[in-house]
Design a protein around this nucleic acid. Structure first.
Lengths: 178, 178
DNA sequence: CGTGAAACGTAAAGGGA
DNA sequence: TCCCTTTACGTTTCACG
């Protein structure tokens, strides 16, 4: 797939930026902002989704409002063959309270991001659900006291943007002697 | 605010579930699914947003597609007064590549989730941007080799749901002798 | 990529349980 | 308070140029 690495143009970056800020923005608004027809915006969005650049659209909820006020990171040590290790990863990922599973460098094989109601429920999850997964040898938990920032918004390179600005609007503000 | 702890009913949980799965779902679709008029759905969504239950709607992008293929978790040790500590947290949070800043229990004050282009850029970020923040004493970085699961979807209690099903559809499938 | 028209969705007003 | 219907307006979608 040569397409997967195809670079994103200015318009696509601006569309992605708008969608990261507010996924329910209308195509018409995007069209007005980037100066395209709505149909062209729709086409670009479809292609971005097909290319896998856009993975999905998610509502972001307040964890406390759904009784998941306790956040923790859990380092899980796994023993056994590579196959058994992968299997443990998949079983960790299958737990709904486990929001993230990362395979990390170092002695602790997996790093998990976990949300539970409170510390008690966290303890129960560790012992009853995670600890019982075959291959899981030990866990080391870091409890989060307060979250200062939490976003999935990726910083989009504005380099292409700047280039384009220099090549279009900016030149209108500058004396050019041909 | 007594409203902040008000519990969510079955319909609200279903709306939130739909929005978590696909934030661009139309109100009309939600209305059909939960069996309400579109206007009632609109009203509920507005209240959920006003209550802060819904924090926002975000597009989820493939980090590699925007040249942020290197994920890492960074434990940051901070020295100084409580005020200086908070200030360091705010400055860490201001870095776009720093997606999350959590204040954690234990000797390492902050745990960060960071995305960069590659290991080189990660190193540069650590030295040039994070290391220069006043109060930051040291950092310990865990590099992610592979992400098995990464979602922001919170598991919603289906207990209320099940009750409702028992009270409605389920009874239709069951012999009831009055 | 844009146009145009049909199909569809949204949001506000008004009223009822 | 919560929900419904109605209605005017905006948006999405698709065939076509």
């Amino acid at each position: 797939m040569a397409l997967i690495d195809r670079t994103l143009d200015t318009i696509e970056l601006r569309l992605l930026g708008m969608l990261q800020d507010y996924a329910r923005v209308s195509q018409a608004d995007m069209a007005r902002t980037v100066g395209l027809a709505p149909s062209a915006v729709l086409e670009r969005l479809r292609k971005l989704e097909a290319r896998g650049v856009i993975r999905g659209f998610a509502a972001v909820l307040d964890p406390r409002a759904v009784d998941l006020g306790q956040l923790a990171f859990v380092a899980v040590r796994v023993s056994g063959s590579g196959e058994q290790e992968e299997n443990a990863g998949a079983r960790l990922a299958a737990v709904p309270e486990v929001l993230e599973v990362h395979h990390v460098a170092g002695e602790d094989c997996y790093l998990l991001k976990v949300r539970t109601r409170d510390a008690q429920h966290l303890g129960a999850l560790l012992r009853q659900r995670l600890g019982r997964i075959p291959g899981v040898v030990s866990t080391r938990t870091t409890v989060v006291l307060e979250t200062v920032k939490e976003t999935s918004r990726l910083p989009l390179e504005t380099r292409t943007d700047l280039k384009a600005v220099q090549g279009h609007e900016a030149v209108a503000d500058v004396e050019v002697t041909p």
